[in-house]
Design a protein around this nucleic acid. Sequence first.
DNA 1: GTCTATACTTGGATAGAC
DNA 2: GTCTATCCAAGTATAGAC
Lengths: 230, 230
Amino acid sequence: MLKAVANVMRQPNPKGGPMEAPGSRGTGNTKHRIVDAAIETLKKDGFAGASARTIAERGGFNQALIFYHFGTIDGLLLAALDRTSEERMRAYREAIEGATTLTELATVAGRVFREDLRSGHIKVMAELIAGTSAHPGLGPEISRRVEPWIELTREVGQRVSRGTGFDGVLPPEDMAFAVVSLFLGIELMSHLDGDTTRAERLFSVAQGLASTFEGLLRFGTGAMVGEEAP
Amino acid sequence: MLKAVANVMRQPNPKGGPMEAPGSRGTGNTKHRIVDAAIETLKKDGFAGASARTIAERGGFNQALIFYHFGTIDGLLLAALDRTSEERMRAYREAIEGATTLTELATVAGRVFREDLRSGHIKVMAELIAGTSAHPGLGPEISRRVEPWIELTREVGQRVSRGTGFDGVLPPEDMAFAVVSLFLGIELMSHLDGDTTRAERLFSVAQGLASTFEGLLRFGTGAMVGEEAP
DNA sequence: GTCTATACTTGGATAGAC
DNA sequence: GTCTATCCAAGTATAGAC
């Protein structure tokens, strides 16, 4: 039950492994396919269903390849998280970086998260976080990979709230923690009954609230909180 | 992998099982102990770590007893959820029913959820929801057991927002879904690094926000949204 | 690098003695 | 109702042929 702990970060194989040597064409392609299958399996079967056998069967390759390329299952799962995380982080950054007002942010973040919800990208993270209790060795590794999401959220929140007179009230760190938690929770809930309509509705409402709120602020509420426009 | 699906609701044993016969003293005590151990195991080892053997070892009883009393592991896990859910529901209801203002609500709900966070009661639910992907048969069962929580949240939210001029803006259903999701997410995040300080801080801040907001409302913002006090 | 075969462990579940 | 013994499926991981 605990024996994977010390091995989580172990390198592919004792002899240096498939180190993506300069001239190797096509190599690395298999690793890619394995990671794909792992992501797919985490989405559909969850952490508890992500065994070497199920992953290998879904991907149509041999089970032993996992251990050759990633050492352990946990190693593969971390690689899977790295991939989705990187992909989605790029998507969020691109979508969000143009947004400066609360309304824009709500619109654009809602759109990207809807994509996630449908494709299950955040599910990978939620499942791994939940699975951490069973494989404690994963804890610190997952934790490190979640931090950038909190940081991204904090940055964006801070940028958008600047000058609204709201940015002293809810500290950005707390806001970011809450938002990331909320997204993870929505992901869990939505996959419970395969029903994303509640989540979709929530995002519509949030969008509406954001622009209403923004309108109110422009109205002079800023002065009430004791803030001046820059 | 899928064979538990049809068995989830199966009764204890073929012959009618240990049906808590009227005169049986002490009986049912064992079932209780088994459920205790299951809850403890879900909290500490998560869904993926909650095997018959680990549960039995933690509880100091024989592994076979689980199948005698609950038919399957999934059956036991549902019983575990029933117990925590009932216990915590009572605690929340008692704590919350007196609260009529937003400030009171934030204070009291925060206190109870902090208890949860430390004792891990909601973790049981979060782990089971996450585990549902691996055991699809659990899906509907868990879903049924989550609904009352959304309903409770909705009721309370509605009661508190009544007359604040806020209760048309964020539909109670959406609010309830968001709050439950948020709590589940916070639970996941807090157990990831065993650090509950971020969650604790968030609750303090929320408490502060609630009373600030309430103060603003009393100030006449209600009129701005077009609502009159009852 | 990839496959087959295999060792060994853990897990769900049942039979049967007590 | 509880325990021992046991069956068999599934899991991780490795050795060794190709």
